[in-house]
Design a protein around this nucleic acid. Structure first.
Lengths: 102, 102
DNA sequence: TATAGTAAGTTACGTAAAGTAACCAGTTAT
DNA sequence: ATAACTGGTTACTTTACGTAACTTACTATA
């Protein structure tokens, strides 16, 4: 569909990314420092298939960087960029809203 | 699936709601005051089917109230509760992040 | 030599959610 | 009688998500 939101393209674009399932939780994990694929996977009920897909999206959007260490077995670490870390107040805002209004 | 997120149930619960498609945009619309069904529908490319579904969810979660005016044709107005309005800083945070990091 | 183990994925397939379009009820205006 | 309006609902298609098995590359164990 090519129809464009009359309203607030900024919010709309951001939600296309952040609103996808698991995305906010992945960013939340990475706010505490870089993590390996399996660490993220076992911290939440996400499948490898979708985690891989989400991390690629986040990398493409410039929120996450991927670093490969050629050890045995291979180690891959994901971490937030400045753009990703800039979401900290948003994530924390959602958390505190949730806490206050449950 | 019954598996529980080890991490941050607050963020997880909030994102189950706010992360659904269109939900944040609907709340954004209502931050400027109450709106009719058709007003919301025509402000973004959402279908009646899904708008109806989302508004019911938001009403059930206590973020939105629904008021019927028995005029001709009928008028139905949706507005935010305090719980809904409390999301203003979150929505504005996402907007400004989006503006800054595009 | 074969077997198994590990990390980080990918592939194939089934189900659930979202998108699209047509339709409906109640009332009024033409 | 016909059309028009709002606020939906129904039926159907397409896309996203969930599950489980498999893959690659290397190592350690029997």
């Amino acid at each position: 569909m090519m129809k464009e939101t009359a309203l607030c393209p900024r919010l709309s674009n951001a939600m296309d990314l952040l609103g996808k399932r698991w995305t906010a939780l992945i960013i939340y994990q990475l706010l505490n420092g870089s993590k390996r694929f399996n660490e993220i996977e076992s911290s939440m009920p996400i499948s490898g298939r979708l985690l891989s897909e989400r991390l690629k999206e986040l990398e493409m959007e410039g929120l996450v960087t991927r670093k490969i260490y050629s050890e045995v077995p291979v180690r891959v670490e994901y971490s937030l960029t400045d753009k990703g870390f800039a979401l900290r107040p948003v994530i924390e805002g959602i958390e505190s809203w949730s806490q206050q209004w449950t």
